[in-house]
Design a protein around this nucleic acid. Structure first.
Length: 319
DNA sequence: AAGGTAATAT
DNA sequence: GATATTACCT
């Protein structure tokens, strides 16, 4: 029963080495900030406008949001995307949730003390996150409700993130829910992760059997991700605590830091001619916008045309 | 409710 | 046929 959510230190939280003092110049001091648990809108006002009070943000939420913000700041560069997917069947529209980072991203908490001298462009990520705890009683957005969500496409980036999280969690704690939370990919459901996890496990099993053979010709996705060797076991969340690995892996919680040293990883996709699937989805950093729609109109060229009104003001004001 | 696995759908 | 979703059971 000792399930306890621990918060690992993240840049700006516990360790000051990553702190950039310049950024804090114009910012209000912590004392000036209202408590997180304090509602910004008075109850009366909220009820008057039928605004459903958002559940309290936990420290974990803040943590995740911070990470996103940081990652967003570090690379404010955007990228050009070409979307070319259109599978307007009955219920299948390819799309992609947002995964942070684009090219390189290696979770290596412990590394040689080499100064990070080069920076790579990173993608922008959003910060707002849903923190639903209780089921919506009777008041829910009638617009984006009960719609079949499009088929999730596990891009290499997404998968990478998945693998990283799983690796850092340890095979024991790598359960769908936790993975989902740590991945911090908006729109990603537990089911999505569970499904992928299922496949991933099968893949690992298959690989162990043939420890001498390279990745099968199939499994393009899995093959692209070097299976971390940290997939063994690691107690922690369950009960016993306190094993320090001399390794560079974090014991229990996963901060998913963004590394400085760019690790160029070769991505041999030989024998794969122009694959016309350039996926990439991003929306500008807009903390105010409530995203939760991603159901009807996509940000892609392909849109699931619904005869109904596509309300919900999620402005995909991409730029 | 959440995890795991098998079946089913695309 | 691969890959993701859904159903089912635990």
């Amino acid at each position: 029963m000792g399930e306890e959510v621990k918060i690992a230190d993240y840049p700006g939280g516990g360790a000051d080495d990553e702190r950039v003092s310049e950024w804090e110049l114009g910012l209000p001091s912590p004392a000036d900030l209202p408590p997180l648990s304090q509602a910004l809108i008075p109850p009366e006002l909220a009820s008057a406008f039928s605004i459903t009070p958002e559940p309290y943000r936990t420290l974990l939420d803040v943590n995740r949001a911070s990470q996103d913000t940081i990652s967003a700041i570090r690379g404010g560069a955007s990228q050009a995307f070409s979307s070319s997917n259109f599978q307007l069947d009955d219920r299948a529209t390819v799309f992609e949730p947002d995964a942070t980072a684009f090219a390189d991203e290696e979770l290596e908490p412990d590394r040689d003390g080499s100064g990070s001298d080069s920076r790579k462009l990173r993608k922008i990520d959003s910060a707002a996150e849903e923190a639903d705890s209780a089921a919506p009683p009777a008041n829910d957005d009638p617009s984006a409700r009960s719609m079949k969500r499009p088929r999730l496409v596990w891009t290499p980036q997404l998968h990478k993130r998945f693998v990283d999280v799983v690796a850092h969690l340890g095979i024991k704690n790598a359960v769908p829910k936790t993975i989902m939370q740590l991945m911090n990919v908006e729109g990603l459901t537990r089911e999505n992760v569970a499904s992928h996890l299922q496949k991933y496990r099968l893949y690992l099993k298959r690989m162990q059997g043939l420890s001498n053979e390279g990745p099968s010709s199939s499994d393009q996705l899995f093959a692209s991700t070097p299976v971390p060797q940290s997939l063994h076991e690691s107690g922690g969340g369950g009960g016993s605590a306190g094993h320090s690995h001399g390794n560079g892996h974090l014991p229990v919680p996963i901060p998913l830091p963004y590394p400085g040293p760019p690790a160029m990883m070769p991505m041999p996709m030989l024998g794969m001619p122009p694959m016309g699937m350039a996926v990439g989805n991003h929306h500008g950093f807009n903390p105010l916008a409530q995203q939760r729609d991603w159901s009807g109109a996509n940000k892609f060229g392909s849109v699931v045309s619904y005869p109904q009104s596509h309300s919900q003001g999620v402005t995909p004001s991409d730029k």
